[in-house]
Amino acid sequence: MTETIILFLLALMILGSLIALESKDILSSVIAMGAVGFMLSAIFLILRAPDIAMVQVVIEILTLIILIRATISRDVHTVTDTRDFLPLALNMVLLFVFFIIAAEAIRNMPDFGTGLSKVAGHYLNRGLNDTGSANIVTSVILDYRAYDTLGEATVLFAALIGAITILRRKAKND
């Protein structure tokens, strides 16, 4: 039952992303993107990941705001025709190679719903006593693997600094 619902939502996500990429109007493609994100959040909820579903909903709203504020009132005549022949052919070759490699990788995956990493048992058994945190995800990101969070904070900081630096020079010139 769970599997069927996830398959249905995934098919809808694929449909939404195709609409987002092929639509002629930029605004409608951004809105289709929002639909894709909310369906992803629903899938996270079904997959028993409430933390991530919560973050995904809010992040999706913020992404929509960013994209709409960046694109609206710009680019009235959208470009719809494809690229030149040679780059397009090269890209198709790249996509084909990726497809073959990914299909091979997917074939060797364990079945859906069976693969649990070995370290997960340790975390689940001892997480409460080691860290005192009832939410095991929190205990992983902030105690067992806090270095990961430290690196994440650094990447976030770097990305924000990059965005602010790219956008700031014009403001000073004015």
Binding site: L47, R48, A49, D51, I52, V55, Q56, I59, L62, T63, I66, L67, A70, L116, S117, V119, A120, Y123, L124, G127, I136, V137, V140, I141, R145, D148, T149, E152, V155, L156, A159, L160, G162, A163, I166, L167, K170
Partner: peptide
């Protein structure tokens, strides 16, 4: 229970994804 470790990885990856999207949009604006 389901595996908590992928969830922890993805939790950080989602927030980074938003920051990177903002960076890309800033480049596009420029």
């Amino acid at each position: 229970s389901v595996d908590p470790m992928p969830q922890a990885m993805v939790l950080t990856a989602i927030v980074i994804g938003l920051a990177v999207t903002a960076l890309l949009v800033a480049l596009c604006v420029r």
